[in-house]
């Protein structure tokens, strides 16, 4: 509609105001905080110091935590891609009625609190949990296996929490797939497996890649699931920041950890997007 040039700015002004106050300002404030210093005796000292960053980037303790976090995220993203991609394709090939029902079943848990889903795994994985009872019941093991407070437990629970995102991303790219191209491939003499490998997978690759990125970044900043299943012994970055803030009261250190996490996440997201765009720019405009 033909109108004045200021109209769009006026329309977005309220949202912009709220964002400036509750997103931009806090992020700036916490960045400044991360350059302050802290001791038990004096509390938070204003000033500009890189000491917190130096410690995060050089201390072995923090190295282990960051390595554990990003290793965990990588593993979770890989497993989610490995099981989520075929599942999305199976859904894609179902009759419409079954498909919408199962989509509801698989995507629905995204709306159930992460806490509730993690709790379910705590019940399943515990010493007297369902999995151990079942394994002992069929005689596979004699004594219960410890899943709680292990990396295995955290990975299983995180895959469960995040795999619907991967299914969703692949499903979205499968929906854009012209069903006739598979038929065309078959009519040209390709086997079902060849059609899958040469025709379907290349076209849904952007979906697989973006799904993996989503799962990776969410796993890297996950808090509830690692805290409950992994516990203190398997600290991840988010828990470390939490402890610095709410237990040690060392806010500047917590802020520096958060800043490093944010920077790492942004670098990975933007770098990955750039790479994917370069690779698929021609085929997928």
């Amino acid at each position: 509609m033909a109108e004045r040039k200021t109209t769009p700015y006026l329309l977005s002004a309220p949202a912009l105001l709220v964002y400036s106050a509750f997103l931009a300002a806090p992020l700036i404030a916490v960045t400044i905080l991360s350059f302050n210093t802290f001791t038990m005796a004096t509390g938070i000292q204003p000033g500009f110091s890189l000491a917190n960053y130096a410690e995060v980037l050089t201390d072995d303790y923090f190295h282990r935590i960051f390595l554990r976090t990003f290793g965990l995220a990588l593993l979770v993203a890989a497993i989610a891609a490995l099981i989520g991609t075929p599942e999305a394709y199976i859904l894609h090939r179902m009759a419409p009625a079954w498909r919408s029902a199962f989509l509801l079943v698989i995507l629905g848990p995204l709306l159930v609190s992460v806490l509730v889903r993690t709790l379910g795994w705590a019940v399943l994985l515990g010493r007297n949990g369902l999995i151990n009872s079942a394994l002992i019941g069929i005689g596979a093991i004699e004594r219960p296996i410890e899943f709680m407070y292990t990396m295995t437990g955290v990975v299983v629970a995180l895959v469960h929490v995040l795999v619907p995102f991967h299914v969703l991303a692949v499903w979205a790219s499968l929906r854009r797939l012209d069903p006739a191209v598979e038929a065309a491939g078959l009519s040209l003499g390709a086997s079902q497996a060849t059609v899958l490998r040469r025709i379907v997978v290349p076209q849904i690759m952007p979906g697989i890649l973006s799904g993996s990125l989503i799962v990776f970044t969410l796993a890297a900043s996950a808090f509830a699931t690692p805290s409950i299943i992994g516990g203190r012994r398997l600290k991840v970055v988010a828990m470390t920041a939490y402890d610095e803030f709410l237990n040690s009261q060392n806010w500047p250190m917590g802020a520096a950890i958060a800043a490093v996490l944010l920077a790492a996440t942004l670098v990975i997201v933007l770098g990955y997007n750039r790479w994917v765009e370069r690779r698929y720019a021609q085929a997928f405009q």
Binding site: L27, S221, A241, W251, A258
Partner: peptide
């Protein structure tokens, strides 16, 4: 906000 980990938003808002 979709790109910012919630833990980061949490510490930032706590401070702010």
């Amino acid at each position: 906000p979709l790109m910012v980990p919630h833990i980061v938003l949490g510490v930032a808002l706590l401070k702010f």
